[in-house]
Write a protein that binds this DNA or RNA. Structure first.
Lengths: 339, 339
DNA sequence: CCCGACAGAACAAACGATTGCGCAAACAGC
DNA sequence: GCTGTTTGCGCAATCGTTTGTTCTGTCGGG
């Protein structure tokens, strides 16, 4: 016999399976003689009994498994979010099923994936780019889910406070005397990209600086995108900005390359800062000043929220915005020229 | 009723559940009238029936789920391996359960995790650093598993061909005229680290060069480790090497920093190359020449092997060594001085 | 006209747990 | 000594499938 079942334990302890079950589940309100309980525990121990999660799941309609859908696995932000979710899930006795959903997933595929859904108790969806329909389908199916890394109206969401993060970065640059601060934005279609752009505007205005639309260039989320955007920006404007604030670490790294090729010193001529801290920030030259964003905590908070919904039996639509982790000052930012 | 069950379908089609099951599982050898089959399919379609994976798993003792244990999630190599495993798993109808197991996991923890094991059909273990006992426990429990990213004697293993990869790198450097080629090694305790060191020696010898033990420095797997090791090496040797071959991308990036600070030009004075290609290689200055290593393919091959074991019912102990993806020549390597 | 053979579908027993309910023994109150 | 309550535990149904076995016709052959 490969693995001991409950009835094996019950047989060895000479009790009914129901009694064995009650004892082994460790419920308090049960009336079982102390001697019987000990006998059952001893039998379970001797046989190395472990409850079969599949059978339990069938009976209780709870798999104690969380599904997590992410658009890309190689992105450090999602990797960190997975790590955070896994940490919380493990601590709360849940397993984590991960699913790679390309960004632009055909609807039918998405629904096919839903088929797998009754094997999870809830879904952590980092991938609902514009997928309101999928969200609705989930809600209709009564599957608890939380939108991760973006705010989905009407759904429980856990995301980063991009506005606050941009404000930290802008305030830092302004405190160094910068007033012409360009923004290498993310994708215009992305939730985070849009909010970072909005945050750039808001933070500048809060500092009494008029945001100049000419200083915005969309760079996407790659180094080459950052390099190209930086080049386009330099080619376009009369007076180059004294500082560049990139929406992501890798686009900032790309921008650094372009600036170097253009013969501009960083931070002598142009300061560069980015959102999202990470190991890469210390590998580039000069090392990048960043605003740390709590990606791991985002995954963890998402898992917490999801488990709360599952165990509470309540679907919540609360939105959690995680504040930035703070400025990580390195070598790429310095006083504005002529100050 | 939240979700339709098989008996709902059977009732609607006015047949027995067993008949419905046979039709919906789509087995060929079954004798069912065409008209009945159509009626059942129509009913299933109308109700949006999807088989409950949990019930099916209980009955068939197959969860169609793969477990994957990794030591770190933020490491790009493991992220890629996960992506590869997920791709194959999804294509073959399996789900991927990921589990983060710290490197030095206490045995009792490991066994606790085993408890979750009857919810997976097999285990992809990237984390059996020195865990022969765990491997044995798995084997004894009859759980199919494959060791990933290292070769575990007696177990089915999928790993990288470090020897071949180092040879590609060494040959490249030698072809540029280098003969004093230092090695920034990984951890001496790590399987990959050890083999890369061995590969360095073997490749040099194959080129008729005596490997000089003085030119080896252990750098671990971090940028700061790489920087420190490079510094130590420079401080130690009389004549600096003309080339440095790092066991990992990030340690090479760290070494670059040290070389820059020491006033040595790359590749003018010293060429630098590393194993493992990745986005980081293009972000550093100068961009790094690397040997691409198939991390995603490793995850994929591991999943393939595991599924083959599961579906074949045979435990294999075959070892697959994946050949390097090839040299990615960038700016950090050049002709040896004085050639 | 009877007897297999066979197709088509129903019956029923699992898989391994959880849980409402019922039953016996022990015990108290009167 | 009889009833009523409590305590401790067993009985049996159930979760949603899969699958071996059995049953009922129908049909062809002798």
């Amino acid at each position: 016999m490969a693995v001991a079942t409950l009835s094996d334990v019950a047989a060895r302890a000479a009790v009914d399976v129901s009694t064995a079950s009650r004892v082994l589940r460790g419920e308090e309100g049960q009336r079982v003689r102390e001697e019987t309980r000990a006998r059952i525990l001893a039998a379970a121990d001797a046989l190395g009994y472990r409850a079969n999660p599949v059978a339990r799941a069938l009976r209780t309609a709870r798999t104690h498994t969380l599904g997590m859908a992410v658009p890309q696995l190689d992105n450090p932000v999602f990797a960190a979010a997975i790590a955070g979710a896994e940490r919380v899930a493990a601590a709360r006795g849940y397993a984590l099923l991960i699913s790679h959903l390309e960004d632009a997933l055909p609807a039918k595929d998405a629904y096919a994936r839903l088929a797998q859904l009754n094997r999870v108790d809830g879904l952590l969806a980092a991938t609902l780019e514009e997928d309101a329909p999928l969200a609705e389908a989930l809600a209709r199916a009564g599957v608890p889910f939380v939108a991760l890394n973006r705010v989905l109206p009407g759904a429980c969401s856990v995301a980063l406070d991009n506005i606050a993060a941009m404000r930290v970065a802008v305030d830092h640059l302004v405190s160094l005397g910068h007033r012409r601060i360009a923004h290498l934005a993310g994708r215009a279609s992305g939730w985070n990209g849009r909010l970072r752009l909005a945050g750039w505007r808001a933070a500048l205005r809060a500092q009494g600086i008029r945001p100049d639309p000419e200083l915005v260039e969309h760079a996407g989320y790659t180094a080459s995108g950052g390099a190209a955007a930086m080049a386009a920006l330099l080619a376009r404007v009369r007076t180059p900005p004294t500082a560049v604030l990139a929406a992501t670490l890798v686009s900032a790294a790309g921008a650094l390359r372009t600036l170097r090729q253009a013969g501009l010193a960083v931070p002598g001529d142009v300061s560069v800062a980015a959102l999202h801290d990470g190991p890469v920030a210390e590998l580039v030259e000069p090392q990048l000043t960043t605003v740390a964003l709590p990606a791991e905590a985002m995954g963890a908070a998402g898992a917490e929220a999801l488990i709360a919904m599952i165990e509470g039996g309540q679907v919540s639509d609360a939105t959690t915005l995680l504040p930035p982790g703070g400025l990580v000052r390195r070598a790429s930012t310095g006083a504005a020229r002529g100050r």
